[in-house]
Design a protein around this nucleic acid. Structure first.
Length: 887
DNA sequence: ACTTTGCATGTAGAT
DNA sequence: TCTACATGCAAAGTA
């Protein structure tokens, strides 16, 4: 924006108003926070923020219009204006003084013969004079930032809607457009509402869907309205707009932008929560209508909750909507309501209410068949509209995963041919796993299509997901944002915040691609913060004043010929660069920072890997991670954090989900790493243990839990002694080299500091070294003797081979009932701790030996899914598999 | 035993 | 603090 040419040709200072050219008359002012700059009128020195004008006016040529009567300049900063303008038939506008009106904002449509006039928002200059100096000076920046969307959004949206409005208004030739605006504190709300009045309007304002209930909307707010019921809510119905626009008039130029429209009648925007504003596109409206002689008035919509979509068949209606748009009912039993779906099928629901506190709770009963016929789920949206002149209620829907469900057969497209994000996103990428930081790779692998994706994803994530609700409300609900840039907040809003049981939205699931363990590995000291060294019990600890930051994610592979590699993606060019294994990357890393390879320290340097190789690389890394997760031997992560375990498992679940297409691993919904029939603690646990078990319960589940708890405690002690033993061992190593390699490898793994790269590289080391040495594996297996695996099946021989002397369930129970110390003594665990320390860091099942090793030709390694499943799901857990199971 | 119905309650958001 | 509403739950109804 800062570099764009000035769009404002005339100073808006009422006493100045000097006209200027694009190239002159203005001088740059000070830089603003946004990186933008203000501009100053050469003549009077009035300061304007250039971007505000360029964006709000989005009219390069005319940031103002003249009052048809008095030639007063009406400027486009009117959004927050409270003045009322009058549109004239001939396309002109009258200012407040000339129109003799006052007190409301309005919009002007620059009508051009072809109906595509640029939409403009005019005012009489009141906004301009609102700040102290009468201009949008820098101090208004914050306000502007809060409420202004990017220029493209507002421009395109307004443009589209105004096109329609303009066209319609031409045809309907209403002599005047008055729109009461109750408050203009939010300029977008003003915009939205005014826009609605223009684009949708309501020729139906005085029509009521219910015969006998026809009333003038002007009296809807009165208690005598037939539409009002028993304990009316406190809201008053607003005065409806006069503008009458019929949809058929716009048949040729139907907007496909999903717009949150305040209700055309009934409750105004301020009364009805924006979440219920219909976001139906004009195209959808037209489709619903079918009949060009019919007009569809969107009434409201609702995102289905789990209850709504459940088998109960009750759809809870927003009270305000029910009272505003449905017939009045005085008895809880209510009355049957005929509602037609988009296919024309008519459904009869019972519209009724339940007394609730001193209020009412309105429900539609018997909606299950309809919901099912539409294949709706929680999170999907149902829309209620009214078809006029029949006054028929029409029920539409929008799938959460594809918000254009009503016209699934038609691609939703922006006027310029660009797909709307929702259809585009869901259609192309709905099931595409998104790995943070890998979008560039995806781009390179998948071609130009994914370039779109990358942008969209970025936009979604950055703009919407991280916005505050408030802001998002404004942009989404009030700003007529095209859905392109804003995934439906509502889609997850209710689900996420209120329902613990609902499915995580697929978009949300993307957020869980990083396990806790991985997150830990990515932690880096805050840059430019020097640690102070603190020595505690002869151990030096680096202490940082600043909290850690996340470093850049990289991937690790191990070549079959030996040697590990670390690869990272440039933040700038998205090319992948090979790095030393021990390299630590800052959060932002580009080719320029590639100090290890001078030939590739620039983004212009070619990629080292062909797309195919990259694909393999990524796939391998994914396998690698999965393997690591399933055979993680981090003693420090095994306990103490069931919540983290759960998080990690959730992430695993996501990973598994990603790979489901490739990996033919039968998983259960409960526990993706286990096959149906698995009897581990996770799989045998009931869905909810709430209130099911008493403290004295000795059922299988409870005993297992107790056992695990005991083992946790045992291991804590074990680790403690392990540390001591380790020190002693190191002393011994200096004296005698016997078994040094084995000891060192294990102790190293156990004690190595948490290096960001160690996890994956370490795993690679393990795998490779094991592939080279079966003997070592055997030794490791032996060293697991005495290890208690809590996931083993007591009756299965394999379990006993996992290192624990065969134990029956009875013996487990006995063990569980023993005091911990007694158990330790009986099993000589104090003396075993050393061995276990070694074994704890080793030995995933041998079937996995070669996994994670990439061949030099970059063909997928032998990590076949069958092997995976065999390794981790054949109930033959490694000595430490239990560590991965959440309790 | 299962489903439906009606109400109660907890919680998030609005005021 | 109030209100709306999602949902839990027990009573009633039904197969």
């Amino acid at each position: 924006m800062a570099s764009s040419s000035l769009s404002m040709k005339s100073c808006m200072n009422a006493t100045c108003g000097v006209s200027t050219s694009n190239s002159g008359g203005w001088k740059k002012g000070w830089a603003l926070r946004s990186g933008d700059f203000a501009i100053l009128c050469d003549n009077c020195g009035s300061a304007y923020e250039q971007s505000v004008f360029c964006e709000v006016f989005h009219s390069k040529d005319s940031g103002w219009r003249e009052c048809t009567s008095c030639s007063k300049r009406l400027h486009c900063g009117c959004i927050a204006s409270r003045s009322l303008l009058e549109l004239l038939d001939g396309g002109g506008v009258n200012c407040t003084s000339c129109s003799g009106s006052e007190g409301a904002g309005s919009m002007n449509v620059d009508k051009t013969p072809n109906g595509f006039g640029k939409p403009k928002v005019d005012n009489n200059g009141e906004l301009q004079s609102a700040p102290a100096n009468g201009h949008l000076a820098a101090e208004t920046k914050a306000y502007a930032e809060d409420i202004l969307p990017p220029v493209g959004e507002i421009a395109s949206t307004i443009f589209s809607n105004f096109n329609q409005a303009s066209n319609a208004s031409c045809q309907t030739a209403k002599p005047e457009i008055h729109r009461t605006v109750t408050a203009a504190k939010d300029l977008y709300e003003s915009l939205a509402q005014t826009n609605l009045s223009m684009s949708l309007g309501s020729s139906l304002g005085n029509q009521n869907p219910f015969p006998g209930g026809v009333v003038d909307e002007r009296v809807l707010s009165k208690a005598s309205s037939p539409l009002q019921q028993g304990p009316r809510s406190r809201h008053l119905l607003p005065k409806p707009p006069k503008l009458a626009l019929s949809m058929d008039a716009n048949a040729g130029m139907v907007s496909q932008i999903r717009v949150a429209r305040p209700p055309a009648e009934g409750r105004g925007r301020n009364q009805l929560l924006p979440r219920y504003w219909p976001r139906i596109t004009d195209q959808e409206l037209q489709q619903i209508s079918g009949d060009p002689n019919s007009t569809i008035v969107p009434l409201f919509e609702k995102v289905l909750s789990a209850s709504d979509a459940g088998r109960i068949g009750r759809l809870v209606l927003p009270k305000a909507c029910a009272e505003a748009y449905f017939p009045p009912i005085s008895q809880p039993e209510g009355l049957p309501l005929r509602i037609q779906d988009v296919k024309g099928k008519e459904w009869v629901f019972q519209f009724r209410f339940w007394p609730n506190n001193n209020s009412r709770m309105y429900v539609l009963e018997g909606v299950t068949p309809c919901i099912q016929s539409m294949k709706l789920q929680a999170g999907d949206t149902v829309t209620f509209s009214r078809m006029d002149p029949e006054g028929k209620l029409v029920m539409g829907f929008r799938k959460a995963s594809n918000s254009i469900a009503m016209q699934d057969t038609q691609p939703s497209a922006m006027p310029n041919g660009v797909h709307s994000s929702e259809s585009y996103f869901s259609g192309v990428f709905e099931n595409l796993p998104i790995i943070s930081g890998y979008s560039g790779l995806l781009q390179s692998l998948k071609g130009s299509t994914d370039t779109h994706f990358s942008a969209l994803h970025s936009a979604s994530g950055d703009i919407s997901w991280h916005k505050s609700d408030k802001q998002e409300d404004r942009t989404r609900d009030g700003l007529l944002l095209p859905s392109l840039l804003v995934p439906e907040r509502k889609r997850t809003r209710n689900i996420g915040s209120k329902s613990k049981r609902l499915l995580i939205d697929s978009l949300d699931a993307f957020e869980l691609k990083l396990t806790w363990e991985e997150a830990q590995d990515l932690l880096r000291p805050a840059p430019s913060v020097k640690p102070s060294i603190v020595t505690i019990e002869d151990h030096d600890f680096e202490e940082y004043e600043e909290p850690p930051v996340f470093g850049k994610r990289s991937i690790f592979i191990v070549r079959s010929i030996g040697g590990q590699e670390q690869w990272a993606q440039c933040d700038s060019c998205s090319k992948w660069r090979r790095l030393p294994v021990d390299a630590l990357l800052p959060p932002k890393w580009t080719c320029v920072d590639n100090t290890w390879d001078q030939s590739r320290c620039s983004c212009s340097a070619p990629d080292e890997l062909a797309p195919r190789e990259l694909e393999n690389l990524l796939r391998l890394n994914k396998d690698f991670k999965k393997r690591k997760m399933s055979s993680s031997h981090q003693p420090t992560q095994e306990h103490e954090s069931s919540g983290l375990d759960a998080l990690a498992n959730a992430a695993i679940l996501g990973d598994v989900g990603e790979q489901s297409a490739a990996a033919a691993v039968a998983t259960t919904t409960k526990h993706p790493r286990h096959r149906p029939g698995c009897s581990c603690i996770v799989c045998i646990q009931p869905p909810s243990g709430k209130g099911k078990h008493k403290p004295t319960c000795t059922c299988n589940v409870c005993m297992t839990v107790k056992r695990r708890f005991k083992t946790l405690m045992m291991r804590k002690k074990k680790r403690q002694s392990e540390r001591e033993a380790e020190i002693a061992q190191k002393t011994q190593q200096m004296a005698g080299p016997k078994d040094e390699a084995e000891v060192e490898s294990s102790s190293k793994l156990a004690s190595i500091p948490r290096d960001p790269s160690d996890n994956e590289a370490r795993s690679g080391n393990e795998l490779e070294s094991k592939s080279q040495s079966n003997n070592l594996s055997n030794k490791l297996a032996d060293s697991g003797k005495g290890h208690l695996d809590l996931n083993c099946h007591p009756d299965r021989e394999e379990d006993s081979q996992a290192g624990l002397a065969r134990m029956s369930m009875t013996s487990f129970l006995q063990v569980a009932s023993l005091p911990l110390d007694t158990y330790l003594k009986q099993n000589g665990l104090a003396s075993l701790s050393e061995q276990q320390a070694s074994s704890a860091c080793h030995a995933p099942p041998q079937t996995e030996e070669n996994e994670g090793i990439i061949k030099d030709d970059c063909q997928p390694a032998s990590a076949a899914p069958e092997q995976e499943s065999g390794g981790e799901e054949n109930d033959e857990p490694g000595p430490d598999q239990s560590q991965n199971d959440p309790v």
